[in-house]
Every structure is written in C-alpha cells, then in structure tokens.
Amino acid sequence: MERIPILRMGNLLLVTIQVDMHDKLALTLQDDLTAKIADLGAKGVLIDISSLEIVDSFIGRTLANIASMARVLDAQTVVVGMQPAVAITLVELGMSLPGIRTALNVESGMEYLQQTTSPDLSEEADVDRED
C-alpha cells in the first residue's frame, strides 16, 4: 500500500508530503505518525508541506488532528513551508488552524523543535546558574 515515509532524526520525526494526497493516504499518515511517536518516544514532529499545491479542509483537519494527538503523546508538531497561495486559500476557506505551530522552512522548524524539546537545554541552563 502507498505510504508517506517518516524519517527519524534523534527524538524528532520528519515527514515530507510531496504527493497529491487522497483522503485515505492522509489518514494512513495520521495512524503511522501517532504509532511512531508512541513507539519511539519522539518529542517533536516536523511536517514539510512546501510541495503541496493545495490544502483543503480535509488535509487541514488531518494536520490539526495530528498536532492534537501528538500533543497528547507529549510531542510538539510544527508544519513548515506552506505556500502563499495555499495559505490565502485556506484562510478564505475559513481554516486558520489555530492549534498548529508553523515555520517558514525545515531549517527554522527544526530550530524551533530543538529549542522546545531538547533536554540538554535545561541542563545547560542549570549549569549556567551554578556558575
């Protein structure tokens, strides 16, 4: 069966959606992602949609669901690279996806996730305080 690959980088999961998804494929991605988050104890999920030419209400809803489910499983989600035309259309459609974190590209998305999920960061802060 057709699947969207999920890459693992440390405690982060990376998904790049490049195909025009039919509804079932989107739901499979939702299942696969939640299962992977739980299995691997992932702390962050990055979804790159820069190649998507449209996001309709179904895909928008799926993205929102993934973010909510990930949050319940203690992982942060960030959606990156939405095209201007897609963003304008989505807003016109009435979906502002308030629960979703966004970033301009993979780089700044990763930066955000590393800042919010890295356990090293808090330890370093403690060390600073001891000094």
């Binding site: 509804d23 030419e53 449209i54 996001v55 309709d56 179904f58 035309a85 259309t89 989505l90």
Partner: peptide
C-alpha cells in the same frame, strides 16, 4: 493566477468530496 488556481482547485476538492 496562481492564487485563483489554488482557490478553484481547493473548491473542486471540497465539492467533489
């Protein structure tokens, strides 16, 4: 225009579903 294309394709997707 690209924005108009995106709008009509998105509407088609909604209505087809």
């Amino acid at each position: 225009s690209l924005v108009d294309q995106t709008k009509i394709v998105t509407a088609a997707s909604e209505l087809a579903r």
